[in-house]
Nucleic acid binder design. Structure first.
Lengths: 345, 345
DNA sequence: CTGTTAGCGCCTTCAA
DNA sequence: TTGAAGGCGCTAACAG
């Protein structure tokens, strides 16, 4: 790889001059600039960002850690974050934690060593790495948490407005005539999950429906586990739900598989609403009523906040907790109770 | 951020000694090692990879460019590549080209400046950046193309075995009794698309079905465009197909929307098979028969080849073109022609 | 074993 | 407007 020195030699100027034409920080005569540019082209010179970063102490890089790239919600978020970053000249390094705390720890450390200037973080489920986050911020690297907001860590965050989003979904089920609505949540160690549970309860209370704790089902975020939990619950003797609300995508998928396994059709045997789109498209049946999070915007806004912290570190605004509203996409799976089943095949 | 010098001071040793305990390249007495490690912990020291890379000329970083992170196929591929990379201590920087040639060019340049040691590339559709790829390789940065294999560029590649994969899908339609099978392709400037078209033709020939050029429909890779093209063709007077084969996921989605728009049900009005999964799950109807590419393995194998080139640059094995077999997931959309329609709702 | 030091490629004063 | 030179943080000889 060509170096700035070789470019200088070929152009017959000093390295300083080459640097000046590259950065544009100092005027250079037309003649020299031309010969420098010619040399750059001839040598296929690409400035060494590694060296530049060492000198300037600026990497123009942001990191983002997500639990799983193959869950559609996260790539959308990344896309939003990347758009915001690019707009300000930063690039984004995206990595998977596999929802694993050890790996998350390693990645945090790795990205710090790589001198990212800020971190976007969707924490892995389980114990929040609050110490690591705090150290990161102490080291002057701002952190913004997305989607999953950890407990008791004074860190900026962007996520959906969980309580009202859950209320939206559950309230809709209520309005469609359902009364025994079960909720399937992820680990309640995640604040979002607790808030969504809260939204569920509020929606029921507002509707004057009593709370039945046997209808609150908790699982981890693996669809297989969810399927198992639901299958058991649905086979347990006793009053069964007439509707199910799932608080996130992987959970929703697990619920669907349980229903399928037990031969329960939605909405006729069981109404169903979930957070997050399960399929890309509306073409497929059953079409699932969904609480849609503004994934791209969450990413975009989080990156904006992060960049703000990076570029104006002094302007120590206090903690920002941005909550974006969800929207409801009403589809078949929450069709009004007791309605005549559609006769179309 | 603490530097190696500060660690050395606090531990009362030289920077050389600190470096030795970090890299493990030179033995250090137990006593000094302990005090160094204590200092590292106390200072929350994270070695500066930027400086290290400048010195060692090793970034331990691979780049991967994909057209669109939000198409499920690509995250899977990335995951595979990341697994292979991590196994050898490399990390992966993944970026979107938005299937845009200019942006791809910028990214290639950026990643070169960032001194990635190798590139995985899913080329944007349109003109292949052969010059850029060649320059990259001339500069000693190996490149492996995934999925979409560009024309006439002597570069390693990993993708599905396109011809036989298409044959698999089309042959299946034939075996289910369909005779007028239309194919919807992406841009034929992509070699894969041409090969898939070839596979389609071979399957027809083997079945003794004459080729009808009016059944070869070409679109770009945007679902909206595909929908438009299909809608027009399906409304054109003349003999209509009884089945459609789509050569990739976005195209398949576009086809589905066109069918839906025209009120055509699959498989009763029109059988359908597509490359790539359209939904994550089997629960949804119509369940689409799919030619499944081994996405994760494609990424994994490509990264392995790349790493091989990086670590053993001398062992100049000639060009590697790895073709992996696809599998067929038979579902409802290709149900046997004229079969009684299932009566279950 | 431990310390000293040159230099990776670049940017940025500072002087000419 | 141009050139010369120091030094960013680290590793890898090399000397002790």
């Amino acid at each position: 790889m060509a170096t700035i020195k070789q470019v200088a030699e070929m152009a017959g100027v000093s390295v300083g001059t080459v640097s000046h034409v590259i950065t544009g920080s100092v005027p250079v005569s037309e003649a020299l600039r031309a010969s420098v540019e010619a040399a750059i082209r001839k040598l296929d010179y690409h400035p060494n960002h590694v060296a530049r970063s060492l000198k300037t102490n600026k990497t123009w890089t942001l990191g983002i850690i997500v639990p799983d790239l193959t869950i559609p919600f996260f790539p959308q978020m990344i896309r939003g974050a990347e758009t915001a970053a690019r707009k300000q000249g930063y690039s984004l390094v995206a990595v998977n934690s596999d929802d694993n705390l050890d790996r998350q720890k390693d990645l945090l450390s790795l990205l710090r060593s790589q001198r990212v200037e800020g971190m976007l973080l969707v924490v892995a489920s389980g114990a929040t790495p609050l110490e690591q986050i705090e150290r990161m911020m102490d080291a002057g690297i701002p952190v913004v948490c997305l989607d999953r907001v950890p407990n008791k860590v004074p860190v900026d965050s962007v996520s959906v407005e969980d309580v009202s989003a859950a209320e939206l979904g559950v309230g809709h089920l209520v309005s469609m005539g359902y009364r025994r609505i079960a909720i399937v949540t992820g680990p309640l160690s995640l604040k979002n999950e607790r808030k969504r549970l809260l939204g569920y309860r509020q929606a029921l209370r507002k509707a004057g429906i009593g709370l039945d704790n046997s209808l609150t089902w908790q699982a981890d975020l693996r669809p297989e586990n969810v399927t198992q939990v639901c299958t058991e619950r649905l086979q347990t003797a006793g009053t069964q739900p007439d509707a199910i609300f799932a608080t996130n995508g992987p959970t929703g998928l697990g619920v669907m598989r349980a229903l399928h396994k037990l031969g329960l059709k939605t909405p006729d045997d069981m109404a169903f609403v979930t957070f997050d789109e399960l399929t890309v498209d509306d073409l497929f049946r059953p079409a699932i009523t969904t609480v849609v999070q503004p994934a791209t915007e969450i990413g975009y806004r989080a990156a904006e906040i992060l960049l703000q912290r990076i570029e104006k570190p002094d302007k120590q605004e206090r903690r920002i907790d941005l909550r974006l509203p969800a929207t409801l996409k009403v589809r078949d799976s929450s069709r009004r109770r007791g309605n005549l089943k559609s006769l179309s095949a």
